[in-house]
Amino acid sequence: MTEIAAFFDMGGYAAFVWPSLGLTLVIMLGLLLQTLRQLRVRQRRLADLEAQGAQRFRRQPGAQTSTTGRQS
């Protein structure tokens, strides 16, 4: 057996070692991606809401300019 094949064979325990490592990577990466995606969605919503809020504030009576608000 070549050295590489022997490595992947894991002394006959390939069917147990590789799924263990694979599952660990899948769960750890999955949690990281879910966390990042959720953070990004929330950050975007907050930015939108704050832009709206700023616009409404400018439109209130007495406010001078109303044309520079960011559209959302």
């Binding site: 949690l31 990281l32 966390t35 990042l36 959720q38 953070l39 929330r42 950050q43 919503r45 907050l46 809401l49 704050e50 809020g53």
Partner: peptide, 20 residues
């Protein structure tokens, strides 16, 4: 540590969104 910092940050933004 990385994940918990990111997730607490995310929860703080969620709380802000609910307040708004």
């Amino acid at each position: 540590l990385v994940l918990v910092l990111l997730r607490i940050k995310s929860e703080l933004i969620a709380a802000r969104l609910r307040a708004l």
